[in-house]
Amino acid sequence: MLAAYRGMWADWVAVAETSDYQNPRLTAHVSGEALSLIYKAVYANKRDGLVTRGTPTFSPWVSALTPTDDPNRATVVDCADDGGWLHYRLDGRLEDQIPGGRHHVQALAVETSGTWKIDVLVIDKVGSC
């Protein structure tokens, strides 16, 4: 489940570098509402002529497993820092001077047919952790 969470972020970071919202890589570690959230964010950047550069940092942990005897659902909690992951215009200029920061993140990982994917993703505002 943590591998799915870290994979989701790695995929999002890679795809955001070009704002290629149709990249099939987005579905490797994500499904459901989480996929929709990421797709919409990358699409909005493409529409607005933006790309994202840099690397956010993470420190996730599993806060719950259900059912406890043979889990197929896991809650992942993180305090992700996107201060080094910023939007740029296609000409290379920084989009704005608003810094990123630390966000409380909660994700629901679901295991289906032996594969864990992040299905729900909630990212709180900057300064929430």
Rank of each mutant, 00 (worst) to 15 (best):
G101N: 03
D82W: 07
D48F: 00
F58K: 02
D78V: 12
L65V: 12
G54F: 13
L90F: 00
V13W: 09
H87W: 05
P99L: 10
F58P: 01
L65D: 04
A34Q: 07
H87K: 13
L50N: 00
M8S: 05
D69P: 03
H29Y: 15
G83V: 08
Y5C: 05
Y5N: 04
V13I: 15
I123P: 00
D119R: 15
H87R: 12
A3R: 14
L37S: 12
P67E: 08
Y5W: 15
P71L: 08
I118V: 15
L26N: 07
L2E: 14
T52A: 05
W85Q: 02
T57H: 01
V30C: 06
N45F: 00
G49N: 07
A80N: 03
A74H: 07
A4I: 09
Y43P: 01
R73K: 15
S128C: 03
L50T: 01
D124T: 04
P56H: 06
A28M: 11
A34M: 10
R25N: 11
Q106S: 13
D48M: 00
D20Q: 07
T27V: 12
R89T: 03
L37W: 09
P60T: 10
G84W: 11
A10Y: 03
G100M: 05
H103M: 05
I38Y: 06
T55C: 01
T55E: 12
P67N: 09
L121I: 10
P60A: 05
V120P: 00
G7E: 07
S36F: 03
S128Y: 04
A41D: 12
L37A: 14
R102G: 00
V110F: 05
G101F: 05
I123W: 02
G100P: 03
D69Y: 11
L50K: 08
A10M: 06
P24Y: 06
I98H: 06
H29G: 05
V126M: 00
P67D: 12
A28Y: 09
V105K: 01
R6H: 13
T75G: 02
V110A: 03
L108S: 10
V30S: 08
K46Q: 06
I98P: 00
